[in-house]
């Protein structure tokens, strides 16, 4: 029984994604090299998030997955942000 429903991503697309990720890495190293003060960590994390999003969308095929899976990933992300918020609020008002 063939029950494969997975999307096939072309080699070219995967190559382009890698190129983008390499560019982001280069950018991260350059940005933290110049002194932006407290912004440098923000920029580094934003770039990291962009990379993570790209890896999940294309390498992990999330773009072509069911709505259920996408919602689940979104839910985990929201959960993590909530945990961060609660921890930091607790920490700040201790």
């Amino acid at each position: 029984m063939a029950n494969n429903v997975s999307h096939t991503t072309e080699y070219r697309t995967l190559g382009k994604v890698l190129l983008f990720l390499m560019l982001c890495t280069f950018l991260t190293i350059t940005v933290t090299g110049i002194h932006l003060g407290p912004f440098s960590v923000t920029v580094a994390l934003l770039i990291a998030c962009a990379k993570a999003y790209t890896v999940m969308t294309y390498f992990m095929h999330l773009k072509y997955e069911s709505l259920l899976l996408k919602l689940l990933v979104g839910f985990v992300f929201v959960l993590f942000v909530l945990i961060i918020l609660i921890t930091f609020i607790d920490y700040a008002f201790r």
Binding site: S6, T25, T28, I29, T32, G33, H35, L36, S40, V41, A44, L45, I47, A48, K51, A52, V55, M56, F59, M60
Partner: peptide, 26 residues
């Protein structure tokens, strides 16, 4: 193979955050 690949991407995903946080503190 698909699930093994997913696991491998996870390892990559974690490193994407570990690298700037551990190595690049300016």
């Amino acid at each position: 193979l698909e699930n093994g690949a997913l696991y491998w991407h996870l390892v990559d995903l974690i490193w994407i955050f570990l690298f700037p946080l551990m190595y690049l503190i300016s």
